[in-house]
């Protein structure tokens, strides 16, 4: 797995992400500066990590979406290359037009950092093949703007095409107002692009990959990606 982690000014979870990728694949990712215009040759996974790119002072992700490196990311995605955006990364991918919809302020208007449960909706995607469909995993969230919204037509398409891969749920896998921590439409925590090669998600699987955090449920996502890329190669 040759992964590249994008580094925008204000991004702050790039090391967490690099650690998770290294653990899963045995190979350190390339760290790619926002002002660069090309990805390293043969990159097969681009990761847009979490943080507060450009301080999130305009709209979350809006400035990063227009950074020089993003054209290369768009080309990579258009050619079917894998792109993973987590938290601020999800916001950036939406702003960049690689994913539909927008991340609004959390419905309770506060930043939330806690472990949440996610239901894995299907296991036939490179981003979920490390899990079983219907499996419930526990990973942390840490965001103030993770309330996914899109127009009715888009939501209908996402649901109809099975593009919602992760949803907030109870420990038993039930959906509901209590478990939908940020008020997202249909409890959406993560979606993929039309071709299924770009995933954006708010929670941080990269923070649950080692025993020290008390839970390793995030490993499946990275292990699945590594496996997918190995079998594709």
């Amino acid at each position: 797995m040759k992964s590249a982690v994008l580094v925008f000014p204000g991004i702050n979870r790039e090391q967490d992400m690099a650690r998770a990728l290294t653990l899963a694949s045995g190979r350190e990712p390339a760290m790619v500066w926002h002002a660069d215009t090309a990805l390293p040759a043969d990159t097969d996974l681009v990761v847009v990590p979490g943080g507060f790119s450009y301080g999130d002072y305009l709209r979350c992700g809006a400035i990063a979406a227009r950074a020089p490196i993003m054209d290369a990311v768009r080309t990579h995605a258009a050619q079917g290359g894998l792109v993973l955006g987590v938290c601020n990364g999800f916001q950036i991918l939406c702003e960049a037009g690689l994913l539909p919809g927008v991340l609004m302020r959390n419905s309770r208007l506060k930043f939330i950092c806690k472990d949440v449960h996610l239901r894995v909706e299907r296991s036939d995607s490179p981003f979920t093949r490390g899990y079983n469909a219907g499996q419930v995993i526990r990973v942390p969230v840490a965001h103030g703007e993770g309330n996914y919204e899109a127009d009715d037509e888009t939501v209908k398409r996402l649901e109809g095409e099975g593009r919602v891969l992760y949803r907030y749920c109870s420990p038993e896998g039930e959906l509901g107002e209590d478990s939908n921590i940020n008020g997202a439409t249909n409890s959406i925590a993560g979606i993929v692009s039309e071709k299924g090669n770009v995933l954006g998600m708010m929670p941080h699987p990269e923070n649950h990959v080692e025993d020290i955090m008390g839970c390793t449920d995030g490993r499946g996502l990275f292990a699945g990606l590594a496996e997918h890329l190995k079998s594709a190669a």
């Binding site: 967490d16 998770a20 506060k110 950092c113 942390p140 840490a142 923070n207 955090m213």
Partner: peptide, 14 residues
């Protein structure tokens, strides 16, 4: 209070 603080970033919070 502490759920408004990111206490897991950097991945070292034991």
């Amino acid at each position: 209070v502490w759920e408004q603080y990111d206490h897991v970033i950097l991945g070292n919070t034991v």
